[in-house]
Amino acid sequence: MPKVKAEKKSRIHNEISKQGIMFNKDFGQHILKNPMVITAMVEKAALRPTDTVLEIGPGTGNMTVKLLEQVKKVVACEIDTRLVAELQKRVQGTHLQSKLQIVVGDVLKSELPFFNACVANVPYQISSPLVFKLLLHRPFFRCAVLMFQREFAQRLVAKPGDKLYCRLSVNTQLLARVDMLMKVGKNNFRPPPKVESSVVRIEPKNPPPPISYTEWDGLTRIAFTRKNKTLGSAFKQSSVLATLDKNYKLHCSLHNKEVPANYCIKTKIEEILTNSQSLEKRARTMDLDDFMVLLHAFNAEGIHFS
Rank of each mutant, 00 (worst) to 15 (best):
D51C: 07
D51W: 12
V53C: 05
I56H: 07
I56Q: 10
P58S: 06
P58A: 09
G59V: 10
T60F: 00
G61K: 05
M63E: 02
M63L: 15
T64C: 06
K66L: 02
L68K: 04
E69F: 02
Q70V: 13
V71Y: 00
V71D: 01
V71T: 06
K73Q: 13
V74S: 02
V74A: 03
V74C: 02
C77R: 01
E78W: 07
I79C: 06
D80Y: 06
D80Q: 13
R82N: 14
R82S: 10
V84E: 02
A85F: 02
A85D: 15
L87A: 11
L87R: 12
L87S: 11
Q88C: 09
K89R: 15
R90E: 02
V91Q: 03
Q92A: 15
G93C: 11
G93K: 09
T94E: 07
T94H: 06
H95L: 13
L96D: 07
L96S: 11
Q97E: 15
S98P: 12
K99W: 03
K99T: 08
K99N: 03
L100P: 07
Q101V: 14
Q101H: 12
Q101G: 00
V103E: 14
D106T: 11
V107S: 05
V107Y: 06
V107R: 01
V107E: 00
L108W: 03
K109I: 00
K109S: 15
S110I: 06
S110W: 08
S110P: 00
P113E: 01
P113C: 13
F114V: 04
F114L: 11
F114H: 12
N116M: 02
A117W: 00
C118R: 02
N121V: 14
V122S: 04
Y124F: 15
Q125K: 09
I126P: 05
S127V: 01
S127I: 01
P129S: 07
L130T: 01
L130M: 14
F132Q: 02
H137N: 14
R138T: 08
P139W: 10
C143I: 04
C143N: 15
C143W: 00
C143P: 00
A144P: 08
A144M: 02
V145S: 04
M147I: 08
F148S: 01
Q149Y: 10
R150L: 04
R150I: 04
F152M: 04
F152G: 00
A153E: 08
A153C: 10
A153W: 06
Q154D: 14
Q154F: 08
L156N: 04
V157F: 04
A158K: 06
A158R: 06
D162K: 11
K163V: 07
Y165V: 10
R167T: 04
L168P: 03
S169N: 10
N171D: 13
N171F: 03
T172N: 07
T172R: 01
Q173F: 13
L174A: 13
L175M: 15
L175C: 12
L175F: 10
A176C: 14
